Computed example of a mutant assay.
Amino acid sequence: MTQTILITGASSGIGKTTAKLFHDKGWNVIATMRRPENEDELTQLPNTLVTRLDVTDSASIEAAVAEGIKAFGKIDVLLNNAGYGAYGPLEAFPMDRIKRQFDTNVIGLIETTKAVLPHMRANGSGTIVNISSIGGQMTFPLGALYHGTKFAVEGISEAMHFELEAAGIKTKIVEPGMIATDFGGRSFDFVNDEAMTEYQPVVQALFGAWGSEEMATRASQPIVVAEVIWDAVTDGTNTLRYRAGADAVELLDNRKALDDATFFGGLKQQLGL
Rank of each mutant, 00 (worst) to 15 (best):
A10M: 05
I14Q: 10
K16G: 06
W27I: 11
N28H: 15
E39D: 07
D40H: 14
Q44S: 13
T48I: 09
V50L: 03
V50H: 02
L53S: 02
I61V: 12
A64W: 04
A66W: 01
E91G: 03
A92I: 03
K99D: 14
R100N: 15
V106P: 09
T113F: 02
V116I: 13
P118H: 04
H119Y: 12
R121P: 02
A122D: 09
G124M: 08
G124A: 04
T127F: 09
G136L: 03
Q137G: 03
T139S: 15
P141L: 10
G143A: 14
L145N: 12
G148I: 11
A152Q: 05
E154M: 01
I156E: 00
E158Y: 00
A159L: 10
H161M: 00
F162Q: 06
E163C: 02
A167G: 01
K170Y: 03
E175P: 00
E175C: 00
F183V: 09
V191L: 03
N192P: 00
N192V: 13
F207T: 13
A216T: 11
R218K: 15
Q221W: 01
V225N: 02
A232D: 00
T234I: 05
G236F: 04
D247K: 12
D247C: 09
D247A: 13
L251C: 05
L251P: 05
A257N: 14
L258A: 08
D260W: 11
F264V: 07
